[in-house]
Write a protein that binds this DNA or RNA. Structure first.
Length: 562
DNA sequence: ATAGGGTTAG
């Protein structure tokens, strides 16, 4: 990695931010001139363009840590709730809960609003059982829940736990307790169903709403629109958007932004252009998010220069780039240019005069992690702490990943056990993967158990890891059960992993039997299963063995189905 | 005044 002192000798330049910028642009142009290859001169150009425009990004707040009033506590429940809400808004549920308990200690009886906020804080910390029991405590203390209080539980069941039976039961309970579910409740449920790819069911909820004369609005419909886009059903999405006009819910900019994202994901940039062209006559105006989405789409499609061009268009329209825009460009620069140079940009963001956030750090740190610059990752992590940028679960996941990849398994486990963040499925997957490679079998057992206890739903990667762990210990029957019980239509990765291990251990008859069973259930293998199968055979050197006949049998069978 | 309606990471 470059020494930053050599690249940016700011310590010797006691200039203003703009002088610094001039220097930096000059420096990059110099490098540009020195470089003769066309491909890297294009890279340089992106960096220069970035720096030219960086003055338009939000400026860092000169005083990011206002010293809190040392003697607050005048407090009635309303004020307590305001404090708790502001903690929650700045993503500090722990702080909100601390306030709640302080309020209890000071003898102020919590209002309905306070209970609701505290429950919300518990839910966002994934402390679900406690959220439920707080609800019961509240009722027991004579405070009756309103739609908002039920709403927190509904969000917990539907969004977090994806336990839709409980969610429906709660909706029923609401109706029976004189607090009939409203647009907000139904919209929460619909959004959660769509996120769990249960769009059909979301439509049924919509029908039920209409049956109860509860009018949906744009926020109710947007998740459905998003579901169409996620499935690349752009024509359906467009029709749905037009249909909204006929049900007296003219789509707003947010709806159009969902469509823009969908168009970008299928690479239909002309489609985006024509949406923008016709926006005025269709009754909406693109906003900063519209352009962010478009710019990101272009950058991800390898059309970074066009992306940067749209930034100019955005400015011409009087829209201001945000920190999200900055992050989109940082991500783009990481891929199109040298990660280490972007790393230096981030390090010097204050001098360069733009505000960075958690995501800026996470983006650069994860890129640094993938080029094995682990010490740089840790350096940025400490930098962000110094700057008062609070790391989130993503940041911790990157740190854990870096430590594992750098062979510091114990340190990774310490970070995990520190309790300074709320782990998610990726945290567990990262650590499990690390422990698997390190051969720390006992730790693995604990981690899987932890995950279950914390009610963190396993994803495809978890399932792959389970298969790998079980097979390595020759526990093939449990591995088969994992694959059988894992309901994830979108992926065959776990099957591919199982296939690999079956071949590796020479259990070809068992593999054939499993395949037959799955064929009978209408299974069609995908290219990933082939890939693992072929790789396993190659690694085993089976091509010369007498098993080749059976391999051909399997491959033929698969090809026939494909 | 209750909605994880939209963009950035893996």
């Amino acid at each position: 990695m470059f020494s930053t002192a050599v690249l940016f000798p700011f310590s010797t330049i006691a200039g203003t931010a703009s002088k610094t910028l001039d220097f930096l642009i000059g420096f990059l142009q110099l490098r540009h001139l020195r470089n003769h290859t066309t491909s890297s001169s294009a890279d340089e150009d992106l960096l220069s363009r970035f720096l030219r425009i960086s003055q338009k990004f939000p400026k860092p707040n000169p005083n990011p840590h206002p010293i809190p009033n040392p003697d607050p506590l005048p407090l009635d429940p309303f004020h307590w709730n305001s404090l708790m809400k502001s903690s929650l808004r700045s993503d500090r549920p722990d702080e909100a809960l601390r306030l709640f308990h302080e309020m209890l200690r000071s003898g102020v009886p919590p209002s309905l609003r306070c209970y609701t906020t505290a429950m919300d804080a518990l839910v966002s910390s994934r402390r679900f059982a406690e959220a439920e029991s707080m609800f019961h405590d509240m009722v027991a203390s004579g405070v009756s829940p309103d739609a908002a209080a039920y709403g927190v539980l509904l969000k917990m069941y539907s969004f977090h736990l994806r336990d839709f039976d409980s969610a429906y039961a709660l909706i029923g309970l609401m109706a029976g307790s004189g607090c009939a579910p409203d647009v907000v409740a139904y919209s929460t449920l619909i959004a959660s169903l769509c996120r769990s790819r249960r769009t059909e069911e979301a439509w049924r909820v919509l029908d039920r709403m209409l049956g109860e004369k509860c009018s949906p609005n744009c926020r109710t419909y947007t998740p459905i629109l998003r579901a169409y886009c996620a499935e690349h059903k752009i024509d359906e999405a467009k029709m749905f958007l037009e249909w909204l006009r006929t049900v007296d819910c003219p789509p707003d900019t947010i709806c159009y932004n969902v469509l823009i994202d969908g168009l970008c994901k299928v690479g239909d940039f002309d489609g985006v252009e024509s949406l923008f062209r016709e926006s005025g006559s269709r009754g909406w105006e693109p906003d900063d998010v519209s352009y962010n989405t478009y710019i990101d789409g272009l950058c991800k499609a390898g059309r970074a220069h066009e992306g940067f061009q749209q930034l100019e268009v955005m400015l011409e329209k009087g829209l201001s780039p945000t920190t999200v825009t900055l992050n989109i460009l940082l991500d783009c620069l990481c891929r199109e240019s040298d990660v280490r140079e972007v790393s230096c940009l981030l390090e010097r963001s204050s001098e360069l005069g733009f505000e960075v956030d958690v995501l800026s750090y996470n983006i650069v740190m994860s890129r640094l992690c993938s080029v094995r610059e682990w010490s740089a990752v840790l350096k940025h992590f400490t930098d962000m702490l110094k700057k008062g940028v609070r790391p989130n679960t993503y940041s911790f996941n990157i740190i854990i990943d870096s430590l594992c990849k750098g062979g510091k398994y114990r340190k990774a486990k310490c970070v995990f056990d520190s309790g300074g963040f709320v782990p998610d499925v990726v945290t567990y997957n990262t650590l499990i993967h690390g422990m698997f490679l390190a051969g720390m079998t006992n730790e693995l057992r604990f981690l899987f158990a932890d995950m279950e206890r914390e009610k963190i739903a396993p994803d495809t990667t978890t399932c792959n890891l389970m298969v790998d762990c079980l097979c390595r210990e020759n526990n093939f029957s449990d591995a088969i059960d994992v694959v059988r019980n894992f309901r994830c239509v979108s992926s065959q990765e776990p099957v591919a992993h199982l296939t690999y291990w079956f071949v590796k251990s020479g259990r070809l008859s068992d593999l054939l039997m499993l395949f037959e069973e799955m064929f009978d259930r209408g299974w069609v293998p995908d290219s990933q299963v082939y890939d693992f199968l072929i790789r396993a055979f190659c690694r085993k050197g089976s091509c010369t063995s007498k098993e080749i006949y059976r391999i051909c049998l399997i491959l033929d069978r698969m090809l026939e189905v494909e």
